[in-house]
Amino acid sequence: MSKKSTVKQPKDQIRGIGRLFAWVSATMCLLPLVLVFAVSTSEVWQRGPWAGGFTLKYLAQGWQTISPYAWFSIKLALLVLLLNFIIGIPTSWVLARHRFPGRDLLFSLTNVPIAVPGIAMGLALIITYPLLRRNGSLLVAGHLLYTLPYFIGSLTPQLNQRSVRDVEWVAATLGANFPKRVMYVIFPKIRTSLLAATIMVVTLSMGEFNVSFFLFNPQNKPLPVELYSAYITGRIEVAAAITLCFLCFVVPAAILLERLGGAKVGNV
């Protein structure tokens, strides 16, 4: 594409600068991941990377410390995901397929939770429904609020796509009823973005700290809350080991998500 031009200095500079900046920031983003590995596998980090040898004992210890919290977080994320399906799919459906008064308002409303800082969300929930803290339902409510905008935001455009609607219309004229159309036309068409939305909800919920900070109870601690106490009180090697366990859940999911077509940021 650029072979034909001979004077191409400024454009190449734009590319060159872009490449440089992209590499610098990518290094900045990835280097800490390597460091976490180095710290968690060093016998005594104080004396330097792998001083005293390579060890897996902190990782074993770290996993033992957090596994109950990890299971709790996974269960919480799955419950939140289920509720995202129950609330998010109908909402995305009406937004994508129907014109009705108040549609723009509904669309703006789906973005509102992004504007509210997690800590304020948590405080409002705990002060309004103090009795619900014990059974953990406040935690579910907070995570649901926090994840739904992203779920709806990535599903709605897909359902609204011309190609999906056209094929569905053809199927309808050929006599396919609604359940059949969902099964054989809509679901296969939106499978990828549904998977992306699912991954996003699970990773967001598993990493959520700000909303959970006020809402957890000591019997039901989500993983990030336990991570935080390791950072504040624990040894740096153990803290790194716990972080590494956590990263093993989250980073593969993030990579998969980008390959499926990318994450959605809160774009109002």
Binding site: L227, V251, G262
Partner: peptide
Amino acid sequence: LTIPLSLPGIV
């Protein structure tokens, strides 16, 4: 450049 999106602030 997308990875930081799924990392909590404490990490």
